[in-house]
Design a protein around this nucleic acid. Structure first.
Lengths: 111, 111
DNA sequence: AATGTATTTAACCATATGGTTACAAAAAAC
DNA sequence: GTTTTTTGTAACCATATGGTTAAATACATT
């Protein structure tokens, strides 16, 4: 097998792990310090640090530093990659999702 | 590390691999036989068979057998798991997606 | 029954992954 | 300037992953 570049992370890689999804889910509530974050999970702090790194490499997290502390928050654009990939599949399970903005604009134009 | 049940696959696991995403992308065009499918990718047939197994375990594929041949097609419901997880994140990147059916029903009700 | 055709499974290999504990780094506080 | 606080990195380990080639399975054809 050819050696893979461990730095090239996609959002798909990042969300494959349940702990990383849980980290993201938690960050929806807002910015969280590294210590607080690690305390919420039943694994060691280094394990969380590694997950955070993967999430950052995938562009899913923003980091803010203040003294020794580091605060993490969601990077809005990150998961859009997954959303875009998913788009054509929505047809298949009947999810009637549309862009509301476009819908409203078109509706207005027809008046 | 605790031994993980290799049979418990989620859609998140399944779509983490780029080859598996490519298989799904290809199946959007319709049902494809195992042989045809394998021929489209630059890896061996057994490799594709293993990817297909992962996709099936995640509930993303349907299988139809006819003689020795096996035909695979998308299982509509499979990716909805990912879509549901993604839902609350849409707020963050400003995707103005709504359920059209619900939108229309509510709009009608207000008349 | 023997052979051919289509496909998965088995066994194996190298690398990736996710966890741990021990160590390093960086800033604050004393 | 030493110590404490907060955090990441290094080294290591066991298991998972994705690939290969060889063998097994299942059905059709002769």
């Amino acid at each position: 097998m050819v050696t893979k570049n461990a730095l090239a992370r996609t959002a798909f890689d990042a969300i494959a792990d349940p702990t990383r999804r849980a980290i993201l889910d938690h960050l929806r509530r807002g910015e969280v310090g590294a210590g607080d974050l690690a305390r919420r999970f039943p694994v060691s702090r280094p394990a969380i640090a590694k997950h955070v790194r993967v999430l950052r490499q995938a562009g899913l997290l923003k980091e803010r530093r203040q003294a020794q502390q580091r605060f993490y928050s969601l990077n809005p654009a990150g998961l859009a990659e997954v959303d875009r990939w998913l788009q054509p599949y929505r047809l298949f399970w009947g999810a009637r999702l549309v862009d509301l903005k476009t819908f409203v604009e078109n509706t207005d134009a027809e008046k």
